[in-house]
């Protein structure tokens, strides 16, 4: 939390958005920011992903000019925190089935329902909430303090401990009419946000992988067993070489995705491929690094176990690993296998 104003000052929030107090960086630069933040901790990168790609992006892309002017400069500066409410207790991989509902009631909308697993929820001053209005998914901006809205924090996580995860509860939550995002209808809205965030995650996960790799290299050079540094054993070297190989391939994938995103040519299936691959290899690298550190690997003195536990969340959120397999499968075969 204490890092937020500083991150805002550095211009890292909504960094790839043009105008409204945002830096207007390229997508490659945005990716590098995610990589370096996640080298520290996935929770920090999650904060930045949610703020920029999931909360600011929909306001920028689907909001009115008044909404953009009201929220974006404050959010870019880190003075306003945003969250993104899509997932529900009974609808995770299948968000289209959501139950949260909005009803048109004269000069306001009334929201009812509950969201779960919402990053930044309790901290947020502004929530971009997806709910069905007349059976169609629409985006709404709910502000902290709106009547009927609460955001209790979820506890007991073994992963992403540096990130706040919350429920969002709407009980006859009444918001003014001008809080609907007019620019989008249906799942395209949230998916557009997720595609931006997933792109950043494909870079971010590599940051965590690099931290684990570097820790493993250092540790293996100094840990002596059988009178030799363990780095001198072929099995250890093979593991390190494999890590470097996978990180390098992942970087090439992310970099290429970034360059074609800058040209406006990146398709969602390519984002799925990059997110799926890079989180997967990052998790495997974290586990291998944990192994190389021996018993020390489970200690908080080394970053590997923390990254490993974090990456379990990253593997699941923003489309689980297998949901991305299904997205690619559909693209390859033309046959959907979700249902």
């Amino acid at each position: 939390m204490h890092l937020v104003p500083e991150i805002g000052e550095m211009g890292l929030l909504g960094a790839n958005i043009e105008g409204y107090g945002c830096a207007g960086l390229s997508n490659v630069a945005y990716g590098l920011i995610c990589q370096e933040l996640e080298r520290g901790d996935s929770g920090l990168r999650s904060f930045v992903s949610v703020q920029g790609s999931l909360a600011m992006h929909p306001i920028r892309s689907f909001g009115t000019e008044a909404q953009r002017l009201k929220y974006l400069p404050e959010m870019a500066a880190g003075r306003m925190i945003g969250c993104f409410g899509l997932t529900e207790p009974d609808f995770g991989s299948n968000p289209g089935g959501m139950l949260t509902k909005a009803v048109d009631d004269g000069d306001s909308y009334v929201l009812n329902g509950a969201k779960m697993w919402i990053t930044n929820g309790t901290l947020a001053h502004v929530a971009v909430v997806w709910a069905k209005l007349d059976g169609e998914i629409r985006g709404f901006i709910v502000e902290k303090g709106d009547p009927g809205f609460s955001a209790p924090e979820m506890h007991g996580k073994h992963s992403l401990k540096a990130s706040v995860t919350s429920e969002l509860v709407f009980q006859d939550c009444r918001i003014p009419k001008d809080r609907i995002l007019p620019g989008v209808k249906g799942l395209r809205g949230p998916f557009s946000c997720l595609n931006n965030a997933r792109f950043g995650i494909s870079w971010g996960a590599l940051g965590a992988a690099m931290a684990c790799y570097h820790s493993a290299v250092e540790y293996s050079k100094t840990r002596i067993q059988f009178d030799k540094p363990i780095a001198s054993f072929q099995l250890i070297q093979m593991k390190l070489a494999w890590m470097l190989r996978e990180i390098t391939k992942g970087q090439l994938l992310a970099l290429h995705a970034g360059r074609i995103k800058d040209k406006g040519e990146l398709i969602p299936e390519q984002v799925s491929l990059a997110k799926m691959n890079n989180v997967d290899i990052a998790l495997q690298i974290a586990r291998t690094a944990r192994d190389i550190h021996g018993a020390n690997g489970i200690l908080d003195e080394y970053p590997v176990m923390r990254h490993m536990a974090n990456l379990e969340s990253v593997y699941t959120y923003e489309g689980t690993h297998d949901i991305h397999n299904l997205i690619l499968g559909r693209w390859i075969t033309g046959i959907q296998a979700f249902t």
Binding site: E9, G11, G21, C22, A23, G24, L25
Partner: peptide, 9 residues
């Protein structure tokens, strides 16, 4: 101060 992203752009 440090340069921020907006300033760099």
């Amino acid at each position: 101060r440090f340069a921020n992203m907006k300033g760099i752009m």
